[in-house]
């Protein structure tokens, strides 16, 4: 599967990454970034059972995705560097500015992503840039939740 992921994401050909879960279609990257592994988070959709938090804008815009993470306690971060006691989420957009992906920073400083309906991986943040996810548009942060 690693070779297939390198085919999808050329940035993974030149950086270290590793798979941390089997493929699971129950959740997508937005859900994973929000610590939910049971739902497919998206603002609108034909497919049944798309989850989107009540009160969040039902539109596929960066502002709507930011609003969702603000509801989870995140605020805009100046950068993606690791900060003690802080959890960060990066939002990706395509060339039209439409959200495509989200990744979450781990305490190690690595970033973690759920790739569509495939696996979770840990990776360099910028390795995911390019087609099909586009670029990191915004990084958000919040205090690391206590267990």
């Amino acid at each position: 599967m690693s070779d297939r992921l390198r085919d999808f994401f050329p940035g993974l050909r030149t950086t270290f990454f590793w798979t941390t879960s089997p493929a699971d279609p129950d959740y997508n990257c937005i859900a994973w970034a929000a610590n939910d592994t049971s739902n497919y988070w998206w603002p609108v959709g034909r497919a049944p059972r798309i989850y989107w938090p009540a009160g969040a804008p039902g539109e596929v815009t960066l502002a709507a995705f930011v609003a969702v993470f603000q509801m989870l306690g995140y605020v805009t971060s100046a950068d993606e560097t690791l900060e003690a006691g802080v959890e960060k989420v990066a939002l990706f957009v395509d060339a039209e500015g439409v959200p495509t992906h989200a990744a979450r920073q781990l305490p190690s400083g690595c970033w973690a992503s759920k790739l569509g309906n495939l696996e979770d991986i840990e990776h360099d943040l910028r390795a995911m840039e390019g087609d099909p996810y586009g670029i990191v548009a915004l990084v958000l942060k919040r205090p690391t939740p206590t267990a």
Binding site: F8, N28, G45, R46, A102, G116, P132
Partner: peptide, 13 residues
């Protein structure tokens, strides 16, 4: 074409 996409609309369409 769609395995790594998060947007379910693109999967279905």
């Amino acid at each position: 074409d769609t395995a790594v996409l998060s947007n379910p609309n693109k999967n279905m369409e």
